[in-house]
Design a protein around this nucleic acid. Sequence first.
RNA 1: GCCGGGAUGGCGGAAUCGGUAGACGCAGCGGAUUCAAAAUCCGCCGCCGCAAGGUGUGGGGGUUCGAGUCCCCCUCCCGGCACCA
Length: 877
Amino acid sequence: MQEKYHPQSIEAAAQAHWNQTRAFRAVEDPAERHGKPKYYCLSMFPYPSGKLHMGHVRNYTIGDVLTRWHRMRGYNVLQPMGWDAFGLPAENAAMQNGVPPAKWTYDNIAYMKQQLQSLGLAIDWERELATCTPRYYKWNQWLFLRMLEKGIAYKKTQVVNWDPVDQTVLANEQVIDGRGWRTGALVEKREIPGYYLGITKFADELLAALDTLPGWPERVRTMQANWIGRSQGVRFAFPYTLDGKAEKLWVYTTRADTLMGVTFVAVAAEHPLATLAAQNNPALAAFIEECKRGSVMEADIATMEKKGLPTGIFVEHPLTGRQVEVWVGNYVLMGYGEGAVMAVPAHDERDFAFAKKYGLPIEQVIAQGDATYSTDAWQEWYATKEGVCVNSGRYDGLGYQDAVDAVAADVEAKELGGKQTQYRLRDWGISRQRYWGCPIPIIHCETCGSVPVPDDQLPVVLPEDCVPDGSGNPLNKREDFLTCACPRCGKPARRETDTMDTFIDSSWYYARFCAADNDAAMVDERTAYWMPVDQYIGGIEHAILHLLYSRFWTKVMRDLGLPGMDRNGGEPFANLLTQGMVLNHIFSCRTEKGGVEYFAPEEVELLRDEAGKITGARRIGDGGTVDYQGIGTMSKSKRNGVDPQSLIDEYGADTARFFMMFASPPEQTLEWADSGVEGAHRFLRRLWAFGAALGQVADTALPATPAASAAPLAVLRREIHLALRQANYDLSRHQFNTVASAGMKMLNALEKAQKEIGADAEGRDTVIGEGFSILLRLLSPITPHITHALWRELGYGNDILDATWPEAEESALVQDEVELVLQVNGKLRGAIRVPASADRAAIEAAALATEEALRFMEGRPARKVVVVPGRLVNIVA
RNA sequence: GCCGGGAUGGCGGAAUCGGUAGACGCAGCGGAUUCAAAAUCCGCCGCCGCAAGGUGUGGGGGUUCGAGUCCCCCUCCCGGCACCA
C-alpha cells in the first residue's frame, strides 16, 4: 500500500473498477433487482455550454451523495445523465466563430462528459441522451401533435421583442435597456402568430396538487401557487355606444367593492378602443407608437414610468351610468386579462400615482376606523380589504366580501358580467423564431392552411449544418428543409420554420431516461417502474418555470395514458432539493453599440474603497476600467463561471467533491471562494495516512463486556457513535456539510486515541478498526475513490459499495454522569456534574449548593429554578 | 415594482423542539521538528478588559426565567418575473 495519498492513481483505479463491474448500471428486471425498493435520483441535466462550472459540481455531487447513500442502504438506484442540448448559446457561438451550433454542441458534450466522468459520479451512462438528437425530439413533435388534436395546443398572436435593424426577434436576454444587444437599435414590441399550450386548463390541478407534495420545499410551493395566482373576482363591462351600436368594454377586478370609486378606465396601447381613438388623434397615435417601444419583460414594465393619454372616448359606469373616460396606459398589457383595467385612484397605489400625475379625480369609497383620507400622499391602509364602503350609495357600510357579492349580483342583474375565477398564469407560448431547436411539425399549404405533419413522417429533422448570422432564422433560407408536399392535398407546400421553446425538451427528459433506447414509443413499461423521480435536485432558479412546465407536461402525458405518468398522482418529482446558486463577481463594460461585454474575474484587478468594498475593477492587460456588477450566478454569458478542472487536476475529484459538500449546506447560496480547498485535501491526506498506518484489519469482534463509560476506549466509541448518529440525521435532512464535519471529528478522535491509548489496552485495535470502518462508509458517498481504495487495502471487503450502511449503537452512547450548564438569571455561571439518573430535586439541590450560585444570587432567595433535563439548570433569583 | 429566500468571528459555516453562540474547517499568531524550506505535529484565536467581568448572531422594538431561533418594523444582498437555461 502506498504511504502517500496519490489521488490521480487511486481515482483512475476506482473508476476502472466501476467500469469493469458495470457498477452503476440500473436494472428494471425483477430477477436482478432482488426485491429492493427503487430509488430514482435525478440531478437537472446540464446545458452543454463548454465546460463544467462549480454549480454543476455542487449539483451533481449532491445527487451522487444521495444516490450512493441509498444504494448502500439497500435501494435499487437509477442515476442517469443527459444534455439539454438545444438553445441560444449555440447560436451565439456560431455567430462568433462560424461553427455550426450542432458541431459546437456535440464537441461541448464530449468534453463535459469526460469532465463529469472524472468526478466519479455513480451514473448509468448507458441511458445518456441529448435533446438535440432526432431520436429524442421526435417525441416532442409527437406529443405536440397529440395536444393539437386535443385542443391543448392552439395558435394565436404573441408579443415579441423586434430588432428593426437586424430584422429579427430578440430574446429578453438580448435586450439591454430597451435596445438590441448587437445593433443598439431601440427594440419594438411586435405581434406575430405563434403556438400556445393551454397550461391554464390545468391551473386548478397544478395548484391543488402542490398540497400533495410534502417532499417539496415550502418556498417552491409558495412561489408556484403565487405564480398560478388564482383569484376570485368580478368580470364586468362598461357599456358604450359607438356609431349607434351598443358595445361593451370588459374588465376584471378583485376589488369590486371599490367599483363606486372608479374615475377612469385604462386600456393597453394595442386595445381596439385605443386604435380607434388614434385614427383622428395624432398625439394619441404617437403615444401608442411610443408604448410599442421597449421590452416585453414584466420587470421592465413594472418599473418604468407610468404614462397615459386620454382617448376622448367615454364609457358608462355599469351601476351609476356616470360617464367615465377611457385612457391609454403604457402599463396595461394587452396579453393579460382583458387588456383593460378599471382605475380606482383612491384605493390602488398605481392608479393613485397615475391620477395625481394627470390631475384625475380621486374619490374615497373605503374607510377604516377613524383614519382620515387625504389625497396628499398614498398610505398603506388605502388598499385595505378590512374597511367598509363609504360614499357608495346602497353599498355603504358593507365589508369587503359583502360588497363584492352585492356588486357582482348587481352587474349580473344588468347582464353586464358576474363573478369569475381568474389566474395570473398565462398559456405557454412555445414558438421561437430560432434555428437551434426542435422543429414544430406543421406544414403550410396555400390551400389547406396549417397542416400537422402525419405521425409516420416524424421526426421532422433539423438540418445540422446551418450557421446563424444574427439576421433571423437560417431555416428560412434552406430550400431543402422548407420544400415539402402538403400531407392533405399533395400540392407543394412549406414547412414551419419556428422551433419549440427549449423548456419543452426539459419537460419530460426524466421520463425518457427510463426508456432512452425505445424508438417505437415515447416511454414504456420501464418508465412505469421508475417513475416518479424519488429525488430531484437542481438550482432554485428553476423553482417556477421548468418545474411547472414539467408538472404540466406530465399531466398531459398521463391523460394520453402513457405508462408511468399517473404515478404519484401525476406528479413527476416526489421530492425536490433546490440547490442554492454558486455566485461569483461579475464585471462588465458597455460596448459602442450599447451592448454589454463581460470579463472573467481572473481578467481584472479589483478596486476597493476605504471600507474594503469593491467599487470597480481594472483589466489586467490594458488597465482599462470595467464596471462591477456585484455578485451573481455563475453563467457562461456573464463569464463568471469557475472551471473545476484545475481543482480536479491538482487535488483530485475527491477533494473537489468533499470541499463542495463541506463549504455550505446545499440549499444555501454560496459565494465562490477556494480558500478551504487546501484544508479539504489535507483531511484526505490524513485519512489516507491513518489507513496506511493502521494496516490490515485483523479482528473485528468487539469486546463482549463493555468497559465503564469513562474508560478511554468507551469514550472513543461514544465519540464515534455520537458523530455517526448526528451524521445520519444530517444525511436525512440533506445537510452534507455537517456530515463532512462528522467525518473530520471521527478522524480527530481516532488519531487522538491511537496516540493516547496504549497498544496493550484490551480491545484497542478492534474499537479503532470499527471506528475507521464507520468513517470510511460514512465518507464513501462524498469521497468514493479514496474510501474505495482504503476499504479494499485494509481488508474490510472487496467493494465498499456492497458494505452495509453504519447505524449508531445505543449501547455505545450511554453515560454514567452528565454535565449540566448552570445559569443564574439566564446568565451562564458554571456547570455541574450529576449522575445520569439524577432527578429534578437532586439537580436543583446540586445547583443551589454551588459556589457560583451562591455568589451570583447575592443573598436573594431562589424564586424559581428551571431544569432542562440533560441540558441546563437556571436559577431565577 | 411584484413574488420567494438570506444576513452569525478576518472567511466558509455549526447550534435538531426557545436552553452553554461560534462545532468542524480556512486564514492568522506562537511553538516543536528541520542545516533550511515544504510537509507534519502541538497550542492560542469574537470584541472590550490586567483581571473580575462586561458585551456580542444586519439595524430598531417586543414576548420569555432564557431569543441566532418566536412576533412587529426597517436596511442591504441573492433568485424568479413567462424568449438565458
